[in-house]
Design a protein around this nucleic acid. Structure first.
Length: 459
RNA sequence: GUGGGCGUAGCUCAGCUGGUAGAGCAUCGCGUUGUGGUCGCGAGGGCCGCGGGUUCAAGUCCCGUCGCUCACCCCA
């Protein structure tokens, strides 16, 4: 077989990288469950027409087809076409409708799965990656306090990763009602268009955004200036609310929608300041490209790694799902686990203490005596100590080297018969210190730190 | 989808105005004949991404193609 070339955008980690990823997944799941979110998994595919409901994303969807149908491609009716899901929200919305009769609302669910997007890959941007979503969905209505809770759960989940070396996170929040109310208040009705331009602020700067607002959205210079003034407001205390209101008043742009949005944003900021100080920051330029958000919107950056983009985003959507009679509003966020993990690994922020689970390598004196080593391994495993037996009865130096290369901290030597024929005690060697002591497989314990591989900040 | 950069050993790379391929690290072996790491010596490993062209001669120049990568777009 020819040497395979790596496929860009489809990340694969080495065993120690996977240990890091697995740890992140375990931590997220634990935090979600701690907050009462129930886990579900949906199928990898959805009917194409479902996936395309979001509009412009169509080009990103990977189609699923059978090789046998290839010749007849094009004849297949589009409603039968399947595509791989490109996020977890669309499948979840479908799942909610399908199971509405059996689900209890408000529904709190988490979902950790791969998703696929046919984008051009880049650092931190993949074509196959893992997302970890939480959402709360109501039937008919969803109280605002869930818009406060959801980002705080994520703050806690990401905060729990600080101990392995994840940099602090900053959750930037805004409210669509504030933006829309303000824009309409100053006479700009192309809310989406304005948001799209404002979203580019960090990349191209205020001058160019101002220009685009005029040319693309039909804004006057004064209107553009007002939009930029709004976008420049940020802060982690409720003072920003007064700032926005003052700006709106100076432009005669106070609308009912704006006031509603400001009330919501204020509640979020106030609660966050108390429950997760310094993490949640109001930032009036956060827009989010997706058009289905209707209330709070969230974007999360790693402090010191802002260039990586958002590692956790989401918001409130009044119509997550609707079957024509009932609508299901929701609020949720999604962590880009692969983006997070790829940065943890590439920036060498974290490391696994070893690349294999084994805490102990049991040496094999000779193939005739392999059963002796197997028995030792069984005894240790019965007490939940991860063990492997040496692959060959090579010279002990080789066997120690085998352990060393994988980071296995202990090598176990089964007792051997001396000249008098008496079998001596087993010994276990800590290959980091070189210390070697008598040991009994029925009672010996590694330290808690050595028992399983751990993920720790890189030294 | 648009535009730039780059493809040489497992990895990181060197290879001048063309003259039939190198280093470091890694791997394996020996020194050390059943207790590793250091050190020394040695070995294996390459259709120089692929295809075509120019030339007596191409890793080197030209064209194409594929892949990787960065930026835009978009997003986790």
């Amino acid at each position: 077989m020819a040497k395979p070339t790596p496929l860009s955008g489809f990340p694969e980690w080495l065993p120690d990288g996977r240990i890091v990823e697995q740890h992140v997944l375990d931590t997220l799941r634990h935090t979600f469950e701690l907050h009462g979110f129930a886990g579900i998994e949906t199928r990898a595919v959805e009917p194409l027409d479902q996936l395309l409901r979001k509009g412009e994303t169509s080009k990103e969807v990977y189609l699923l087809s059978r090789l046998q149908d290839e010749d007849a491609a094009g004849r297949a009716s589009s409603e039968k076409q399947l595509g791989l899901h490109f996020d977890l929200t669309v499948p979840f919305a479908r799942y909610v409708l399908e199971n509405a009769g059996k689900l209890a609302f408000p529904l709190r669910r988490y979902q950790i799965q791969k998703v696929w997007r046919g984008e051009r890959p880049q650092e931190g941007r993949f074509r196959e990656f893992i997302q970890a979503d939480i959402d709360v969905v109501g039937a008919g209505e969803l109280p605002y306090h869930f818009e406060v809770e959801a980002p705080l759960v994520m703050a806690e989940a990401l905060g729990a990763l600080a101990e392995i070396g994840l940099p602090p996170v900053r959750i930037l929040v805004n409210n669509r009602k504030v933006a829309e109310g303000f824009y309409r208040g100053i006479g700009l009705d192309d809310v989406e268009g304005v948001l799209r331009q404002i979203d580019k602020l960090d990349k191209i700067g205020p001058d160019k955004v101002s220009e685009l607002l005029v040319t693309e959205c039909g804004a006057t210079d004064d209107q553009a200036k007002a939009c930029l003034a709004l976008a420049s407001i940020s802060g982690s205390d409720v003072g920003v609310i007064a700032e926005v209101r003052a700006l709106a008043e100076s432009h005669g742009a106070v609308t009912e929608l704006l006031e509603t949005g400001l009330g919501e944003l204020e509640a979020l900021i106030a609660a966050a300041a108390e429950r997760a100080p310094g993490v949640v920051v109001a930032d009036l330029k956060i827009a989010r490209g997706l058009d289905y958000y209707t209330g709070s919107v969230y974007e999360t950056v790693l402090v010191g790694h802002e260039q990586l983009g958002s590692v956790c985003s989401g918001g409130r959507y009044d119509t997550l799902a609707s079957d024509g009679r009932n609508t299901y509003p929701g609020v949720g966020l999604s962590i880009g686990v692969s983006r997070l993990v790829s940065r943890l690994l590439s920036a060498e922020l974290v490391q696994a203490t070893r690349s294999v689970p084994s805490a102990v390598l049991v040496a094999v004196a000779s193939e005739e005596q392999r059963a002796v080593s197997d028995a030792v391994a069984t005894a240790l495993r019965s007490r939940d100590i991860p063990v492997e037996v040496a692959p060959s009865a090579a010279k002990f130096g080789k066997q120690i080297k085998y352990a060393d290369r994988r980071g296995i901290p202990f090598v176990w030597f089964p007792g051997s018969a001396g000249e008098d024929g008496v079998v001596g005690p087993d010994q276990v060697k800590d290959i980091r210190s070189g210390e070697q002591v008598d040991a009994d497989a029925a009672t010996w314990e590694p330290s808690a730190e050595d028992r399983w591989p751990r993920v720790v900040p890189a030294s």
